[in-house]
């Protein structure tokens, strides 16, 4: 974010810029300064620093968000069981209190750092940065950041991750994307978890959940998974491997990526550059989308085409842009 070159002035806020320059005068003689800086600029700056740190070590960083109890930790346990022999995984756990989740992850033989946020309802980039001081990233392939269970606040804070994954568990109800649009709009992948409960909770209709998700104008893949039963995590495991491969290819070309919904500052920056299409930043490649859908859906089709949103996500911005 920059507040000097004017790149953050958009049609939406141009009227705020006074004709007499950056430092105008109000009628009663006060100095009026046009600022137009994102309120979370400091957090975004730290997040960009974290992202550089991840990229330096070739780590794919994923931010897991959901309600409390949607199954983030169980998903990670099952993921470690499935991929732990092929990939080196590390986890940062965010909770208000206790080391319980970190203990569960460590029991799987994977390094885990617990951030106890006290009363804070979300992780921010500074907390993650502090946690990174306790984690050796060399030799790590994927870092999972399990955010505080909360469908509201975590969506507003960039941590430096490359992708946002939002979980929606079957017991929560299929209209969660309509109720929490900020969170679900931020998702690069939505995992419908606890699918093993669909048989006892027929009121949850995965198609309807996906429909509410599409109402948010997102092409993020929607995959139905379960940690119980063999093969129920395949869409997720394939997505992980594809994302890791894609991120490594990007890094080799000196590029990286940000989550689908970039914070305000980077959005405005992107608007000023050539990549106007990246303003809303739906950075999903079609390949990945198809891949997840192939595995995820139990024979249902929906009518939306995604071509208009597909693009190479690698140009969404370099760290610190």
């Amino acid at each position: 974010m920059c507040d000097t070159c004017g790149c953050n002035i958009t049609p939406g806020n141009a009227h705020l810029v006074r004709a007499d320059g950056k430092l105008g005068r109000t009628e009663d003689g006060r100095a009026a300064v046009t600022v137009l800086t994102g309120l979370l600029a400091e957090n975004d700056h730290q997040a960009a620093h974290n992202r550089e740190h991840f990229d330096h070590h070739g780590v794919l960083a994923l931010n897991l968000m959901s309600s409390p109890g949607a199954g983030k930790t169980s998903l990670l346990e099952a993921t470690i069981d499935a991929l732990g022999s092929q990939l080196r995984i590390a986890v940062i756990e965010g909770d208000l209190e206790t080391e319980n989740d970190a203990v569960r992850i460590r029991a799987k033989g994977v390094p885990a750092i617990q951030i106890a946020t006290g009363s804070a309802c979300h992780l921010d980039a500074h907390m993650v940065h502090d946690a990174l001081h306790h984690l050796d990233l060399s030799g790590i392939d994927i870092l999972f950041i399990e955010n505080v269970g909360n469908l509201v606040c975590p969506a507003s804070f960039d941590l430096g991750q490359h992708r946002n994954v939002t979980l929606l568990s079957v017991p929560e109800g299929d209209d969660k994307p309509a109720k929490y649009p900020v969170m679900f709009r931020a998702a690069d992948l939505v995992l419908c978890t606890k699918a093993d409960l669909l048989s006892v909770l027929p009121e949850f209709v995965p198609d309807r959940a996906e429909h509410y998700l599409r109402d948010l104008a997102t092409a993020a893949p929607f995959a139905v998974v379960s940690t119980r039963g063999a093969g129920q995590l395949e869409p997720w495991l394939h997505w992980l491997q594809d994302e890791l491969t894609a991120q490594r290819a990007r890094l080799e070309q000196g590029r990286t990526l940000r989550p689908a919904i970039a914070p305000d500052g980077s959005r405005l920056h992107a608007a000023a550059g050539t990549a106007t299409e990246s303003v809303s930043g739906h950075g999903h490649t079609h390949h990945h989308h198809d891949h997840v859908r192939d595995h995820a859906h139990h024979g249902h089709a929906h009518q939306h085409g995604h071509d208009g949103l597909d693009q190479d996500s690698g140009h969404l911005g370099s760290p610190g842009a």
């Binding site: 806020n13 208009g308 949103l309």
Partner: peptide, 22 residues
């Protein structure tokens, strides 16, 4: 009715202007 839309405005979180005594 298409969902292939781009957000033009609505997700701002900006400090737009300050008035101060200097």
């Amino acid at each position: 009715g298409s969902f292939q839309t781009r957000l033009v405005s609505g997700d701002e979180l900006l400090l737009a202007q300050l008035e101060m005594t200097i």
